[in-house]
Structure formats: C-alpha cells, structure tokens
Amino acid sequence: MSNVIQASGLTLAYDNGTKSIIQDANFSIKKGEFVFITGPSGSGKSTLLKALYGQLKPSTGTLVVGGNNLSNISRPKLQELRTHMGIIFQDYKLVNEWTVAKNVVLPLMIAGYSNEVQDTQARRLLKHVKLAEHADKYPLELSGGEQQRVGVARALSKNPVVILADEPTGNLDDYSSNVIWDLMENACQQLDTTVLVVTHKIPTIFSLPYRHFIIENRGIYEVH
C-alpha cells in the first residue's frame, strides 16, 4: 500500500529556523490508516499538523503529502492539494455568517461543483452526522458538539485522501466526543481515507490497534 504521508529528516522551526519544534523526524503513513499522534502540551503536535497542510514549510528534510513535497510546493499546487484534504479543528473554524449547509459544502464550492451537487451532498452529509434538521441554521445556533459534527461533515464532503484532525474533541463532552470518533472511524473504514488525529490523549473507546506516534523531546516516535 502506498504512503500518503512520508517525512524524512523533517525539522520544523519558527523564527526563521532558530526555534526548532520538531527535529530530524522520520515516519510514514499509508493509505487508509488511522493514526494518532499524541504528546504533551507545547510538544509540537499542532505545528506538525500545520506543516501537513502546508501552512508551515519544513526547515530541513522532506515532508511529502499525497505525492507533493511540501518543502518546495508552489502556491497553486498547495491549493490543489488542500482540496483533497479534510481538516478538522479544535475550535471548529466554521464561517459563522454562512448556514450549516453552506459550511459543509465549502470544499465542493472551492472545487467548482454545481449548486445542485452541493445541495445533494449537503443533505446527505448532514443526515450522516445527524444534523439534517439544522441545515438552514447558523453555526452559532448549534452546540459545540453539533458544530464539530458540521466540521466533520465538511471534512468528508469531497471524499478526501487524508483527514487531518487537531484535537477534534478538545472542547467537547464525552458523549459528543464519542460521536465525533465514530464518524471519523467510519470514514476511515468505509471510504479508505487516511485519518491522522493529533490529540493529547487517546480516547478509551478505541479498541482496535491503531498506529500511535508520540512527540517527545522534539522527536516523533512510534509506540508499539
């Protein structure tokens, strides 16, 4: 099975390379894998995720996502790559002036799908995350758990190659968290989508032996 993400000698740093967060990391993630990356606060989990969706360029080494080397990727190529990613944030990052349905189909809108396709997908996805009746509401009218379900629906809307999730249940109660984990696990198993979750602690509901990396002392190590 081919690698969707491959890091070789990866160093991530801020302040023009002077403040390194991740140093000389090597790992690879295959298509359809569900992977956890954990670590204490400030260890560089979110920094790694930013690098994975091209917001932060590697200082040294290579980071290849979906066949694109993010060290020297052009802006149009990066935009294209991002349309094949589903990104889930701890603070949801929904557009509050848009309806729930419009938020869900943002990736389709960017890809230029027709309004008809967008409407159909919005209905299907909102039904999938059990928010069908909230399609015309605005994000701030929903609870935190519901907003994150909108975020998951948005991430799934264009059948992404990879889903990157940054503490997706960090602001949610146990019930809402379990709903979100179920949705992500289903996406991985049914759509063969690679899911990479950055979190400070692996939730107890996971019984399957998913791969687990830990960020420690600026290195990334696989836990066996």
């Binding site: 935009q79 991002r82 349309t83 990613m85 990052k93 557009v95 990736p107 809108m109 960017i110």
Partner: peptide, 16 residues
Amino acid sequence: KERMQIMETFGAPMML
C-alpha cells in the same frame, strides 16, 4: 479575515 483564512485552508484561490 476569518472567513478568508478558512477558505484558504481548504484551498480556495484568491479570487474565490
């Protein structure tokens, strides 16, 4: 700003 950042994260070109 926030809307434009979110759209950029999901790969929207500048004109969109």
